[in-house]
Nucleic acid binder design. Structure first.
Lengths: 203, 203
DNA sequence: GGGTGCATGTGACATCTGTCAGCTTCGGTT
DNA sequence: AACCGAAGCTGACAGATGTCACATGCACCC
């Protein structure tokens, strides 16, 4: 029997080692490399040549989605499973566009993880069905690129002047974008707009 | 050899089962119950009588810290290990005040988990050393009860009028509390104050 | 009994935010 | 050529927000 080799990228050490223990229980799977930062993924894949990479999204250095884009060109045969805490439809959409082979949330039963690894190696695409439905129902973001930029800049609590300086825009333009973003999200102020956009995966 | 029985409370199924797999590798530990919601903890402890309860903080229904307070009175012999994603000093302080026996973050090496379980049963208190230092350095929240209430109400993006209605306060009083909270956190507006207070565990 | 701190309120003020109307320029589409 | 949507800007206006000074009442502590 051929053993499937895995790379595991997840920033929380205890969770990462626990997932490794879980996968280690499967006789046909072997975790051959572990990293805790997104910007270490590409080098680790090059060094260990795993069959499948399991990537968390939220990681320091580089997100799992950004790492995925860096991998696709150099390693076309590598299968990539995105594993994340947040089942945001926006994440799913972006992961699929970037060429992920599977998308799982940490809320799913553990058995799905090993199952997904085997299925992507068989050439299947594996997506949480409930999440796929939500992504379709929600549709694409109604925000233009600049509206998203401005909302993202407002996330940390910056005022209009700071946002304008950061994005090299005029004071009034920032307010206009924020105003349209607030209307498109159905919010009543910037803070609520940020929360809604984040929840829907538009940010 | 006496086997130590464990209850595992963690909302993300995959993480929970992975931790169970990890703990299952230790011959002297046995996970006898798993729950995914904070409000199921007390009943599960009563039903299974574990030696140690491992509680995540962020859970639906009831937080691990609230569950801990509910456990202390009814089960004085039970040892409780708080295991959380966020090493917020405020969490640590509250956990210790509520009588937790150990406080671990998911960033720590997995080996610390089994180690902590054995040590709390031996009567020790186990606290991540770096976190304890941060908690002492940061000290208690400078916010008064009402300032905290108002900041918490502002979290979702509510305006002054809504906050005033929700807390049965006058319009101006809300602004006064918000103003002092903004100054105490060193923020420049309510959104930033919310973020800072949340990060420091004051909310 | 006086001091201190918190909860709560008022009024005034300056600034920030959100909305609106309207302008230009640029790259596509029809 | 005419049109459209997005990026980008301005000016005006109302309402929200943040700050300050200054009250009152209550509890607690020396």
């Amino acid at each position: 029997m051929r053993v499937i080799t895995l790379l595991l990228a997840e920033d929380q050490v205890m969770v990462r080692e626990a997932l490794a223990a879980l996968l280690g229980l499967e006789p046909d799977l072997a975790v051959v490399a572990q990293v805790g930062r997104g910007d270490e993924v590409v080098a680790a894949v090059a060094a260990h040549q795993p069959d499948v990479a399991l990537l968390d999204i939220e990681m320091p250095g580089l997100s799992g989605l950004d790492a995925l884009e860096g991998l696709r060109a150099a390693h076309p045969a590598l299968k990539v499973v995105i594993l994340t805490t947040f089942g945001r439809p926006g994440y799913l959409r972006r992961a699929m566009e970037s060429g992920a082979d599977a998308f799982l949330v940490k809320d799913a039963p553990a058995a799905q993880l090993a199952d997904a690894v085997r299925r992507v190696l068989a050439g299947e695409r594996v997506i949480d069905p409930g999440l796929a439905a939500a992504a379709l129902a929600q549709g694409a973001s109604p925000l233009t690129d600049r509206e998203r930029d401005v909302l993202a800049a407002a996330r940390a609590g910056a005022g209009n002047a700071e946002i304008a300086a950061a994005l090299h825009l005029s004071h009034g333009t920032v307010r206009n974008y924020l105003s349209t973003a607030i209307q498109k999200t159905g919010a009543r102020n910037r803070a609520e707009a940020v929360r809604i956009a984040r929840d829907k995966g538009w940010l």
